[in-house]
Write a protein that binds this DNA or RNA. Structure first.
Lengths: 210, 210
DNA sequence: GTCTATATAATGATAGAC
DNA sequence: GTCTATCATTATATAGAC
């Protein structure tokens, strides 16, 4: 899916980082062992230390790499949209399984603040470039972008749960279409009528906070 | 916010479980130590073992408790809706901070499958009881309920990130209103126009899966 | 750049006294 | 029901050879 590997890749350092990302994503930071990463990367634990110093530094390297990758994907999506190639734009945005779990974990561990903030800024740019019709809301753009980002991330974060609920492995082509269809349906139809929203808003006003 | 504590609470056993939920939620399962839980609960580590046998069993007890709590909240929401008390329904649904992080972690660790599945069933019931207008979609109810559940959970899961993006602590009354307003806005306005959705759907069809 | 071997610290589990 | 003391395991970090 595009995104040629960095030149610095293919090296032992890159293999270690990729293995780390997989282990962190699958087992979480704490349960992941340097020895396990080393084994997956086909190197010794000593070499991991040599390249990254500590487990914590290794995580930072992974965070940086993910951030760079997301930026690149965003740029590619803009390019595809400028060319009017919607299919390509969708393909680029399609989440690549390798980063899914790592991002999900990282987000919940609280370590991916930079990534989240950047994605909110990206969402703001998208919402500005493609405003929905009849949009004269008093809700700040930033707020909508933030929730949009959270909703977008909810998919990779709960990927396994969603697959189970759908009854299909969403990482397969069939599952992918099912997921995209459902998302498109939800994105193009409001979940509440204007009346329901007004009623809820009114109910909100009379709310006691305890 | 309703939900009187279980009768079995107030005991050392309950204090341990509550402390465990806090520690698991804040630091994750692996990083949490039995000694730390014991200290927070004001008991010895030996007593934790006495009551729950092992760390894993303790986690299961937490999962059960959360599941029971979510069921109770759902029932209370139905009751409030039947009474037409929308404000109360909103108040009940308001996430209680104590379970937020625990649920978020649990969901990402893959341990809360039962909870997620139950919430999807609850969402199906809600979507059935309150169908949106003009709903003659070929997208299965279950699929929409699953994504709706994931979106709903995205808020507590990324609570800190959202607070940072909003520039307000969303657990405060002011933040709460900001969040609810934004959610209401997004729920009552489609993010895509029918034309955009159709174009995206068409783009999806011509997609190569690699 | 890469490896082996070791030191040190922390943890879950356990046993047994009160 | 509740506690203290101890064992066995495991992982990071380190040192140093090749």
């Amino acid at each position: 899916m595009s995104s040629a590997p960095d030149p610095e890749d293919l090296t032992a350092r890159a293999r270690i980082r990729d293995a780390a990302m997989r282990h962190f994503g699958e087992h979480g930071f704490e349960r992941t062992t340097i020895r396990g990463i080393a084994e997956t990367a086909g190197v010794s634990s000593g070499l991991v230390r040599h390249h990254f110093g500590s487990k914590e530094e290794l995580r930072k390297a992974c965070d940086d790499y993910v951030l760079r990758t997301v930026r690149k994907l965003n740029d590619e999506t803009w390019a595809a949209m400028r060319e009017g190639d919607l299919g390509k734009a969708a393909a680029v945005r399609r989440p690549s399984g390798a980063y899914h779990r790592y991002i999900a974990r990282s987000l919940v561990d609280g370590g991916a603040s930079e990534l989240f903030d950047e994605m909110v800024r990206m969402s703001e740019a998208w919402l500005t470039a493609f405003p929905r019709e009849g949009a004269e809301s008093d809700v700040p753009l930033r707020d909508r972008a933030a929730i949009g980002t959270a909703w977008g991330l909810a998919i990779p974060i709960m990927f396994e749960h969603l697959s189970r609920a759908f009854g299909v492995d969403l990482s397969t082509p069939e599952g992918d279409v099912r997921l995209a269809s459902a998302l498109l349906d939800l994105y193009s139809h409001p979940l509440m009528s204007p009346e329901e929203a007004a009623a809820a808003r009114a109910g909100l006003k009379g709310l006691r906070h305890d």
